[in-house]
Design a protein around this nucleic acid. Structure first.
Length: 427
RNA sequence: GCGGGCGUCGCCAAGUGGUUAAGGCAGCGGCUUGUGGCGCCGCUAUUCGGGGGUUCGAAUCCCCUCGCUCGCCCCA
């Protein structure tokens, strides 16, 4: 084996694997289009500052997972680790927020985080993100959760858990934080090391600790929930009520804190036990202050991201089935080969999967190939046919007895079309 | 960044110190130069992720390294 290899945490998606990706993406894009959500594409490469300010300096993503380098113009550049900051930047920069204060957007593409690869986790991974910009009603929270839930449902993914929480607004959070920091000061010695390190950097994340002992100690800590304003409380209750109306089951998880700093109020995650330790397939929440913080107009927003690698892991085997060849063109001989080429172009006017055999191999070989591909029908053109200006077309599955075989002149497009309509396009 | 497991052909694998590294699938060729699915026959790893060492001798033992994988952490 030579020593040119892909980088750690990156993968080649080969044709066989892409069948599943394409089938899954097709369903997803259909759902997005039906919900009137528009695509936005932003650069994969951004200035580093965007993520530091957008995501938050204290977060793990920014402090230790970014692919950052200095370019030839001595600018600090970063391969995007997530999509929301770029979308916010693009909207601000292009003046989109004054012309179109309300927007529903989606994006899909590669993201980069320098982490140890694991099941469902790559360094280059792919996310589908949806952002509702300018929407502040609880109904937009509900719609976006329902949208994520339904995309996963459309893909036939079962046994999902929706976890929700509210993080309150900035005031709620700073009130809580004061009290929480006091408590941390007294109890820090009983926390695990990771959590102790977070006290100064990102205290809220301590709530989300997986350490069993820390979890136990935290049971006596002040709760963010008790610091919520009347307004935040109402909002959260309304969210729960509406999810119940839609019959979307949820679990309240008061320790659910998103890893990116920009979230406010609603936070949610959709997880699946089938994913192993990387259980989260979808994560999202409200970020009412982000756009303003980044220098834009005061614009509330909510969004989510779905990890496509994890989605592919969860989607069933049904999505792995490729579309079969409809017509395989067996051909041999100088004139026959040129007629076959011409015919194959004509056939591409139909919604059919047509493969022209270019091997020049024996008829027997070409038949075997057609059979291996499970082609639904074959066309045969050899010297005899070429001379007469006609070709055979016939159904090729095992059950057919050859009655559907037809001899058609190269000029007779109508006869060809009729045969196709009767045999291939009716299913 | 820290732990555990693993690394033999494109894929799945046998082999655990001794002359030529099983087998299956796939691929290619033939039986059958113009008609498929079955069957039969043949071909396909000077080499066991890479490098070094131990040994008369290593895929098999030791060291280093790379990669994969599963956890921790973090996240989608």
């Amino acid at each position: 084996m030579n020593n040119l290899k892909n980088l750690r945490g990156t993968v080649d998606l080969l044709p066989d694997q892409l069948i599943k990706w394409q089938n899954v993406e097709k369903i997803v894009l259909e759902q997005l289009a039906r919900a009137s959500i528009n695509e936005i594409r932003t650069p994969i490469l951004e200035m580093t500052e965007l993520f530091i300010r957008g995501i938050g300096e204290g977060t793990d993503v920014v402090s230790k997972e970014m692919y950052t380098f200095i370019d030839r113009g001595e600018r600090s550049c970063t391969l995007r680790p997530e999509g929301t900051a770029s979308v916010a930047r693009a909207l601000i920069q292009n003046g989109m927020l004054s012309n179109h204060p309300l927007q529903k957007l989606w994006y899909m593409g590669p993201m980069f985080r320098y982490e140890r690869p694991q099941a469902g986790r790559q360094r280059q991974f792919h996310q589908l993100g949806v952002e509702f910009i300018g929407y502040d009603s609880v109904r937009s929270d509900v719609e976006i959760i329902a949208l994520a839930w339904d995309i996963l449902g459309k893909l036939g993914i079962k046994e999902l858990n929706l976890e929700i929480n509210t993080l309150g607004d900035l005031d709620d959070r700073s009130n809580f934080q004061k009290s929480f920091l006091k408590w941390l000061d007294i109890n820090k010695d009983s926390l695990d090391l990771d959590s102790q390190n977070r006290i100064n950097k990102n205290p809220l994340r301590i709530l989300d600790s997986k350490n069993i002992q820390t979890k136990k100690v935290l049971e006596n800590a002040p709760r963010l929930f008790n610091f919520l304003s009347e307004k935040s409380h109402k909002r959260y209750s309304a969210l729960k009520r509406q999810l119940e109306v839609l019959k979307i089951p949820y679990i309240e998880n008061f320790n659910l804190v998103r890893g990116l700093d920009y979230y406010t109020h609603t936070a949610f995650e959709i997880t699946s036990g089938a994913l192993g330790s990387q259980a989260t397939v979808c994560g999202g929440g409200r970020y009412d202050d982000l756009i303003k913080q980044m220098g834009g107009p005061n614009t509330p927003a909510i969004g989510f991201a779905i990890g496509l690698e994890r989605l592919i892991l969860l989607a069933g085997k049904d999505f792995e089935i490729p579309r079969n060849t409809d017509i395989y063109i067996i051909n041999q001989g100088l004139i026959a080969e040129s007629l076959a080429m011409d015919l194959s172009r004509k056939l591409r006017n139909y919604d059919l999967l047509v493969e022209l055999d270019l091997s020049g191999a024996s008829f027997s070989k070409q038949f075997k190939k057609a059979n291996k591909l499970k082609s639904r029908s074959i066309i045969v053109i050899g010297d005899d046919e070429a001379v007469k200006g006609e070709f055979f077309i016939r159904l090729f599955d095992q059950s057919s007895n050859g009655n559907e075989e037809e001899l058609i002149s190269f000029e007779n497009d109508i006869k060809l079309e009729n045969w196709i309509n009767n045999n291939l396009l009716v299913r």
